[in-house]
Design a protein around this nucleic acid. Sequence first.
DNA 1: AAATTAATGCAACTCAGTTGCAAAAATAAG
DNA 2: CTTATTTTTGCAACTGAGTTGCATTAATTT
Lengths: 129, 129
Amino acid sequence: MGIHRKTSSLNTLLKEFNNDISAITVVDLVSRLGDKMNKTTIYRILNKLEEDSILHSFFGKNGLKWYAKCDGCCNSKPESILNKFRPHFQCLSCGKIDRLNIEMKLPKVTDQKVSVSQLLIQGRCESCN
Amino acid sequence: MGIHRKTSSLNTLLKEFNNDISAITVVDLVSRLGDKMNKTTIYRILNKLEEDSILHSFFGKNGLKWYAKCDGCCNSKPESILNKFRPHFQCLSCGKIDRLNIEMKLPKVTDQKVSVSQLLIQGRCESCN
DNA sequence: AAATTAATGCAACTCAGTTGCAAAAATAAG
DNA sequence: CTTATTTTTGCAACTGAGTTGCATTAATTT
Ligand SMILES: [Zn+2]
Ligand SMILES: [Zn+2]
Ligand SMILES: [Zn+2]
Ligand SMILES: [Zn+2]
């Protein structure tokens, strides 16, 4: 278990994921909340939230770390991932990431044990066309 | 066009992708070739090779940049990607990345114009089990 | 209320990746 | 072949996302 105590920093940070935004960079979070809490705190809380499968993370085009709400797609139970996961879409022009409303299935062809799967589709979003 | 001149640095770098290894980190390349050429040169050549769609890149679990041979999966023609792409697999224990021998199809459900799609599946590889 | 344990702030640090500029190598022109 | 042009390279300094150690503060337990 990552999170042990309910602190105000934790609450403030969690609020940021209750918007319509589907994924946020840590850099963005730091610039939004940097006056309310230290950036180290932000990094540490995000880390714990991922450990608890409340958030999950991945890296976008420029190497920046993105966080998004996890809906069980990162559980250690293989079935849950193998059956369905939802891809993210990053616009290479404006950089924005959204979660697509598609469910994809991953074929179980490997001997490896899968625990996470992240499909990042890249292209140009509607606004940038 | 990224590459204009055939230099020895370019050749040396290209050789590294003729092994059976399916993906290499830049950090790894720098430590292997660092005595033969400057790290800045490595970064710059990789950049150009990606521009020319000879290599493609993505970011692994720890934010490191990986390069692999591109077989047209990163062309700007939407059809080529929408029809098939091959996922990479990263072992969360030893960090190694391999390209899986599976072809996946991406459903064309979006208004967005897709140019790249990268599926990074994560778990534990055979050797680490 | 006191003791224990976890979370936070701060400053310094790490290190992958970038930038500017002068020197060297490759290609083109004569 | 020789000279002029353009690209590539090395070097050193820099950038910035992410980390670490430690002392202080806040939350939870006894
Ligand atoms: Zn998830
Ligand atoms: Zn856009
Ligand atoms: Zn490709
Ligand atoms: Zn492994």
